[in-house]
Design a protein around this nucleic acid. Sequence first.
DNA 1: GTGGTCTAGACCACC
DNA 2: GTGGTCTAGACCACC
Lengths: 128, 128, 128, 128
Amino acid sequence: MDFDNSQPIYMQIIDEYKKNIIRSELKKGDKIPSQREYAQIVRVNPNTVQRAYREMENMDMVETLRGQGTFISAGEQMREQMAKEMAAKVMQHFIHEMRSLGYEDTMIMAMLKCELEPMEEGEQVDRI
Amino acid sequence: MDFDNSQPIYMQIIDEYKKNIIRSELKKGDKIPSQREYAQIVRVNPNTVQRAYREMENMDMVETLRGQGTFISAGEQMREQMAKEMAAKVMQHFIHEMRSLGYEDTMIMAMLKCELEPMEEGEQVDRI
Amino acid sequence: MDFDNSQPIYMQIIDEYKKNIIRSELKKGDKIPSQREYAQIVRVNPNTVQRAYREMENMDMVETLRGQGTFISAGEQMREQMAKEMAAKVMQHFIHEMRSLGYEDTMIMAMLKCELEPMEEGEQVDRI
Amino acid sequence: MDFDNSQPIYMQIIDEYKKNIIRSELKKGDKIPSQREYAQIVRVNPNTVQRAYREMENMDMVETLRGQGTFISAGEQMREQMAKEMAAKVMQHFIHEMRSLGYEDTMIMAMLKCELEPMEEGEQVDRI
DNA sequence: GTGGTCTAGACCACC
DNA sequence: GTGGTCTAGACCACC
């Protein structure tokens, strides 16, 4: 994993786990790497990982058992909620960037539509 | 400026200039910092800046006049083209992220619409 | 302030603030010492104070404004809730200690009554 | 053992022995560690242990036989008296804490009663 | 000045 | 081995 400077590393770690849960690559009960392991893998200080894990515990994403490890505790309901939150975040960022490029909302909609539905029956687009 | 690890720094420098031109913060004829100045400001290796400036010159974004400095050479037409390119890039990135969160295209459209047009037909908000 | 080994220092800091709020010595809007000041006063590492302050912020006991300081945000409702929680904690600790001294519940009640209502009209206690 | 700063360490050592006697974990005639041993175990200055042992001897809690060691000398009667003293101490501390949380005596009684007798007259819980 | 993040490294408790 | 706490000290962003 690489981290950027857009937000704190511990938040990026959390977001990474959120994505994994959303994609169902991690499910309730799965064990995640120990703080030390994870710290070595992503080349980050163990304290930073600990903060990420602690905050995940606070929001009931994971459960930690002392001496045993840390486990995903988020179920299907939480998975859906996280998906909505992440989507909202991604979408707002997208809108912000498009607007800062000078596009108005109607134009943004049109461009996305064009990108997602390149050809519908009877339509002819991009013909000069 | 902060750089991330998603693409080479010289490309990020170019994108930064593109955004400035797109937002009309930089216009044809404006002088931009010398390579040395720029390298000092953003704390980057001068060679990296040189590569960015060279590529910008190759695509006629800027023009270097010996002994005078580097100037924006992109006009209105190029500005629009760059805007389209950047928008396409942003949009593809957005689509990719939404899909990786498990959303299908129709859902993405719906959510964006919902975000951009909070109210439909007959709505009267914030009048007065 | 002195800390004991019964629980982590950061929790003892939080409890101290809780007590101050419960006793209305600190009210909504009051500024509390900066993390560095508090760390110097109680002779503790600033990071430990920061953790306490951060957790207080997470439970909406305080509000922190970057560059300005940290302020009590707990209102009357929260004050009452905290009082109940602290009381429950104190009481359970008391019961545990009394039981470990070999006293049964009825005896504990009787002793407390004796201590709190040393003499009611017409009563004669401790007269052999 | 951990010591706190609420009172001198030698008193805390004495209280620890008192609790052990009260709980009948130590009985008349039992040998207790030598001062040196005890000092090593709890990592305390031998002088501090000496003071504790001396005071315990003064109040006839223990008896030291030269060349043989130190032995509990408190019998059943003393055990009961110590229990009363410790209980009084614990209770006063409890009352003080509850009052400092703003609770009046009648309220303290009521809350304790509620905690100790969760159900009253006619209740039938957990039968079967 | 304020709070926020991060590293490095120690020591502890539980398993 | 696991997670939890704490110190020391650096550097950053906002005011």
